Simulated assay, not measured.
Amino acid sequence: MKTIADYHIHSTYSRRNHGKSTIEEIVERAVELNLKEIAITDHGPKHYLYGIEEERIPEAKEKVLQMRKKYPQIKILLGVEANILSYDGATDISANVIKHCDIILCGYHMGALFSSAKDALKFLVKNKLSTNMADANAMALANAMKKYNINILTHPGDKIPCNIDIVAKTAEETETILEINNSHGHLNVEEIKIASKYNVKFVINSDSHIKDTIGSYENGLKAAMDAKLDLDRIINLK
C-alpha cells in the first residue's frame, strides 16, 4: 500500500517563508516519488502570517501551467488551503481563488483574519477557557462546507475541539473529502472511527512545507489501520 497523490503541499508562494520549496522543486520531488498527482495548496489570502497574497494567485497558476508542460508525466493542480473566518462559515474563498484554482482545501487556522472581533474572541479565547465549544466549532466547519464547494476539509479536530459527528454528517451531505493529516495527527484514530460511520471518503495528505516530506503518509496510514478503516475509502492509496 502506497500513496499515489498528495493534495496538501505548501510552497514558497506562502508569506514569510512558510513553505520552503519552489513549485518546480516540489514537482521534481513528486516525479522522483512516482506520484501521479499533486496539488500546491498554500494558505488562503486571509491568513495574515502565511497566506498567499491575493494578487500572486494568477502568477502561481501560470507557474503550474508551465510545470504541466515541462513534466507531463504528473498531474499538477493549483489550490489553496482556505481559512475558516467566522462561525457562520465564511472563508477566504474569493472569486479570484475560484477562477484560478483547480482544487479547494479548507480548514481552521489560528493565524487567520477572522470576520469580526466576536468571531476572533470565540475562536482564540473562548476555546481556551471553555470545554463546551466542540459543537459550535463543528458547525463553523459544517457551515463552510454548505456555503462553498470545498473538495477537502483539512485536519478537522486539530487546534480546536470539534464534534466530528457533525462534521462527518455534513461532509457526507456535501461530498467533501475528510483529510487524515500525516503531520498534525488529525483525524486521529477515534475521529476516524466516528467519521467512518458516514458515507464519506478520506485522503491522507502530507501537509508538506518542504519538498523532503512530500508524499509522506505513514502516520496517517497507521491511524487509518488502527481505526480499522476500509482503506479503499482513502482516495490516494493504491
Score class of each variant (00 low, 15 high):
Ala117Pro: 03
Tyr7Met: 12
Ser11Lys: 11
Met67Tyr: 11
Ile38Gln: 05
Thr91Ala: 10
Ile234Thr: 03
Asn137Trp: 10
Lys63Ala: 09
Gly215Asp: 05
Glu179Leu: 04
Leu121Ile: 13
His209Leu: 02
Lys2Asp: 01
Leu33Tyr: 01
Ser14Pro: 01
Leu33Ser: 06
Ala112Ile: 08
Ile40Ser: 06
Gly51Asp: 03
Gln73Leu: 14
His43Gly: 08
Asn236Ile: 04
Thr174Trp: 03
Lys61Met: 05
Thr3Asn: 02
Gly51Phe: 03
Lys99Tyr: 09
Ile23Arg: 00
Ile210Phe: 06
Ser94Cys: 03
Leu105His: 06
Leu121Gly: 14
Gly157Thr: 01
Leu221Ala: 00
Lys75Gln: 15
Asn199Leu: 12
Leu121Ser: 15
Ala5Phe: 06
Lys70Tyr: 10
Ile164Pro: 00
Asn149Met: 02
Gly44Tyr: 08
Ile164Lys: 04
Asn163Arg: 06
Ile84Lys: 12
Lys69Met: 13
Tyr7Ala: 04
Gly51Trp: 02
Leu153Met: 08
Lys36Met: 03
Asn132Lys: 15
Lys63Cys: 04
Ala140Lys: 11
Ile74Val: 14
Ile150Arg: 00
His209Asn: 04
Glu37Met: 10
Asn188Gly: 11
Lys99Gly: 05
Tyr13Asn: 04
Gln73His: 13
Lys146Gln: 08
Val189Thr: 15
Lys70Ala: 13
Met225Pro: 00
Lys147Cys: 01
Thr174Ile: 03
Val189Ile: 15
Glu190Pro: 01
Lys36Ile: 03
Gln66Val: 01
Gly51Thr: 02
Tyr198Glu: 10
Leu129Trp: 09
Val97Ala: 11
Asn188Pro: 07
Ala82Ile: 13
Ser94Leu: 06
Lys201Cys: 08
Asn132Phe: 15
Ile98His: 12
Glu54Lys: 11
Asn181Val: 05
Lys238Thr: 05
Gly157His: 01
Ala140Cys: 13
Ile150Tyr: 01
Ile180Met: 08
Ser116Leu: 13
Leu35Met: 14
His184Asn: 07
Glu190Leu: 11
Gln66Phe: 07
His109Met: 02
Ala171Met: 12
Thr91Tyr: 07
Ala142Ser: 15
